[in-house]
Simulated scan of single mutants.
Amino acid sequence: MSDKTTTTGPATLRERAASLEGRVPPAAAGPRTDDERMLLEKAAALRAQADLLEQQANIAAAAGTEVLREQIDRAVAFLAARLAEYEVDPTFHRALGRAVGYAEACLDHHQLEGAARQLLWLHAEARAWRKHSDYFKAIR
């Protein structure tokens, strides 16, 4: 069974979200049922996925291969320095290695959206140390 949200564009995801929201009566109609809350949660998740797809496309369009590689290198250097300072679960080290390897493979094959997706993951992981003095140098 395939997940349709991974192969559709942001506009289609937003249309599906609007369709789900249209099936829920207004809040003034009374308390929400579990089904209505579930439909609204699914609509919110579809909108979030649409936003993420747009963000990935924008990063890929705005950044050429070398710019993207530079951003990934800065984020990895920041995370590697934080991993050296703090005790972190070894699975995170493996996840970081896989993300970097996948990003480099994407860049080597000019698949900028895949590399941009990994960059977003690196940025999300770096947010744990957003109060660090080097954070904004690495994540820009």
Rank of each mutant, 00 (worst) to 15 (best):
M1F: 13
D3W: 08
K4F: 14
T6E: 13
T6M: 03
T6G: 07
T7P: 08
T7C: 07
T8C: 15
T8R: 15
T8N: 13
G9D: 15
P10R: 13
P10F: 03
P10S: 15
T12P: 03
T12A: 15
R14H: 09
E15R: 12
A17H: 08
A18L: 09
S19I: 06
E21W: 06
G22Y: 10
G22V: 04
V24C: 01
P25L: 07
P26A: 06
A28Y: 01
R32S: 06
R32V: 00
D34N: 06
E36N: 13
M38N: 10
L39D: 03
L39E: 03
L39R: 15
L40H: 02
A43S: 08
A43M: 06
A45M: 12
L46W: 04
R47M: 00
R47A: 00
Q49R: 11
A50K: 08
D51Y: 01
D51T: 11
L53N: 12
Q56A: 03
A57E: 10
N58P: 00
I59E: 02
A63C: 05
A63E: 11
G64C: 03
T65S: 02
T65D: 00
E66Q: 09
V67W: 02
V67R: 12
R69E: 07
E70F: 04
Q71K: 12
I72C: 02
D73Q: 10
A77C: 07
A77E: 08
A77Y: 01
A77Q: 11
F78M: 05
F78S: 04
A80H: 06
A81Y: 03
R82H: 04
R82T: 05
R82Y: 03
A84P: 09
D89V: 10
P90V: 13
T91H: 13
R94Q: 14
A95W: 12
A95L: 12
R98D: 14
A99E: 01
A99K: 04
V100K: 09
Y102S: 09
E104W: 10
A105E: 07
C106A: 13
L107A: 12
L107Y: 11
H109A: 11
H109E: 06
L112G: 02
R117L: 10
Q118E: 08
W121D: 01
H123M: 05
H123I: 06
H123Q: 14
R127W: 03
A128V: 09
W129T: 00
R130I: 11
K131P: 01
K131A: 06
Y135D: 05
F136R: 15
A138T: 01
